[in-house]
C-alpha cells in the first residue's frame, strides 16, 4: 500500500499494483467509509480498481495533513462489514440479432454456439470494480475466459446506449452512445445512466451484477426494474 499526490489537489491511496478482488474490496471499504466520514477539505473521491483518489481543496488542507487523515480513514475503514451493503443487480439483456451484431463472431472465435455464449455470459456473477469511461459504465470482473474475444479491428463510430459488449476478458454495458471497439452481444432496455435520479447510475462500484436473458418482445415492453 502506498500514498502519493496526484497533482496539487488530490491524493491517491493505492492498495495494490495489480487488479484483484482483495484490493478492490479495500477500495470499496474506504469508499463506504468516506461516504460518511469525509476527510477535512475533501471535495470528492474516485474509487478505481486498486486505488481511491481523494480530491481536496488545498485552501482547506495541505498534502501532508491530507495523507495523515487519509491513513486514519484507511485504518477505520478496515472495520466495516461490507457484505451488508453489497447489492445484486439483475440486468435484462436481449442477446443477438440487431442488438448483438457480434454475438456470432464471439461464438465462432471461441468455437461455441451463440446459445452457449449467452448461457455462459448470463450464468456468471460479476463484480463492479469501478465506474468510469462513460457515466455509469461498469468495469466488471468475473467473466469466463471461454467467451473472451478481442476488440474489433475497426471501432464503431457509434455504439447505441444499452449495448452489452465483450473486449478481451472484460464485459460491460455502454450507458450512452459512444464510439467503441467492443464486440456487441446484446442490449439492455434498462438505462444505466439516469441523470435525474440519485444516485445517477444504475450500478455503483462494489455491486454484484447478473445478466438475465430476455426476448425481443420483453425488450420492447420493458418497463424498468422493480425498485
Amino acid at each position: 500500500m502506498r500514498y502519493f499526490p496526484l497533482g496539487d489537489a488530490a491524493i491517491v491511496v493505492e492498495f495494490d499494483s495489480v487488479i484483484g478482488p482483495a484490493s478492490n474490496e479495500k477500495v470499496q471499504l474506504l469508499a463506504a467509509y468516506l461516504d460518511h466520514h469525509p476527510i477535512v477539505g475533501m471535495i470528492e473521491y474516485v474509487p478505481a480498481f486498486t486505488t481511491v483518489t481523494v480530491f481536496y481543496n488545498p485552501f482547506l488542507i495541505r498534502y501532508a495533513d491530507a495523507q495523515a487523515r487519509l491513513e486514519v480513514a484507511v485504518q477505520q475503514a478496515e472495520g466495516i462489514q461490507l457484505e451488508q451493503t453489497t447489492r445484486l443487480v439483475q440486468i435484462p439483456v436481449c442477446y443477438g440479432g440487431d442488438f448483438g451484431p457480434d454475438l456470432e463472431e464471439v461464438a465462432r472465435h471461441n468455437q461455441l454456439t451463440a446459445d452457449e455464449v449467452i448461457r455462459i455470459h448470463s450464468s456468471a456473477e460479476y463484480q463492479v470494480y469501478m465506474i468510469g469511461f462513460a457515466p455509469g459504465f461498469p468495469y466488471l470482473g468475473g467473466m469466463s475466459e471461454r467467451i473472451a474475444a478481442p476488440r474489433r479491428s475497426s471501432p464503431r463510430l457509434i455504439i447505441p446506449a444499452g449495448s452489452v459488449g465483450i473486449a478481451g476478458l472484460q464485459t460491460g454495458v455502454y450507458p450512452i452512445g459512444t464510439p467503441g471497439g467492443w464486440q456487441l452481444i446484446g442490449r439492455t432496455p434498462e438505462p444505466l445512466f439516469r441523470p435525474d435520479m440519485s444516485p445517477p447510475t444504475l450500478l455503483q462500484a462494489g455491486d454484484k451484477v447478473r445478466f438475465q436473458p430476455i426476448t425481443e418482445k420483453e425488450y420492447e415492453s420493458w418497463e424498468g426494474l422493480e425498485a
Binding site: 496526484l6 497533482g7 491517491v12 499494483s17 495489480v18 487488479i19 486505488t51 483518489t53 480530491f55
Partner: peptide
Amino acid sequence: MVSAAVALGT
C-alpha cells in the same frame, strides 16, 4: 498501468 482517477491538469 491499472486505470485510475485522473486530475484536472494531468
